[in-house]
């Protein structure tokens, strides 16, 4: 199978922009769409997999996202960021699935065992040593578990903000919320995550514990 030269940069040449790939795909280039998929497959999957807590299901849904994106690419407003548009499709697809399946929040511990071996753990600093690495791994597990105990919409908003780096207005666009609502939801999600970690025993002593019960009460109201 031959691949065209599109998107195969020579050394020193920049890779094609999202806009260029979109235009090439609309012009009929399958290779351009392949590059788009390869460029965004990981971010899209990383959000979906933490929403549904099932690795193989997340891949299926991510496939569906890109298939839908291909058919709707002609409607894409190139003034927008392609990543936000893809996240929006991912959001709608995942929410539709969760509604259809009435999937309850599943702790991520239940699902990471089957997919964990293919997840890339970000490298720790060399100077941390074995204890540091163990500490790092423990915290990652605790953070993942706490994230998994949150409702799906809290998880999503935290991932979009803190893992994917979306701005408030982009999150608002993806999730179909007003910007003020995004800020409120984000605030509540952070508090809830902190409360989950507190309950898991990761809170520092002193001031946090005094404040956490106040915050938890506020969040739950």
């Amino acid at each position: 199978m031959h691949r065209t030269a599109l998107g195969q940069p020579r050394s020193g040449t920049p890779s094609p922009t999202d806009d260029e790939l979109v235009l090439a795909t609309l012009a009929g280039s399958a290779e351009a769409f392949r590059l788009l998929v390869e460029r965004f497959q990981r971010p899209v999957l990383s959000v979906i997999v933490r929403m549904v807590s099932d690795r193989s299901l997340a891949e299926d849904l991510a496939q569906e996202v890109f298939v839908k994106a291909y058919y709707k690419l002609g409607l894409f407003d190139r003034q927008r960021k392609l990543s936000s548009w893809l996240f929006k499709i991912a959001h709608n697809t995942t929410v539709d699935y969760l509604r259809r399946s009435q999937l309850d929040t599943v702790p991520l511990e239940a699902s990471t065992a089957e997919g964990n071996e293919s997840w890339e753990v970000l490298p720790n600093r060399d100077e941390d040593g074995p204890e540091g690495r163990a500490e790092h791994a423990q915290l990652v597990r605790a953070l993942s578990a706490a994230l998994g105990r949150l409702p799906p919409h809290y998880r999503e908003i935290l991932l979009l903000r803190f893992q994917q780096g979306l701005a408030y207005h982009e999150i608002a666009d993806v999730m179909g919320l007003a910007m003020g609502t995004v800020k409120v939801q984000l605030h509540r999600a952070r508090k809830r995550l902190a409360a989950e970690l507190d309950e898991a025993g990761f809170a520092p002593p002193g001031r946090w514990q005094e404040n956490s019960s106040r915050q938890r009460n506020k969040t739950e109201r």
């Binding site: 497959q41 999957l45 990383s46 997840w119 753990v121 970000l122 994230l147």
Partner: peptide, 21 residues
């Protein structure tokens, strides 16, 4: 919190993901 999220593993799609699409 952003610095904490930077520690979370990011899943790698299967090798043939783009092919399947």
């Amino acid at each position: 919190l952003a610095s904490l999220f930077a520690m979370l593993p990011i899943p790698q799609p299967s090798a043939a993901f783009a092919d399947r699409v």
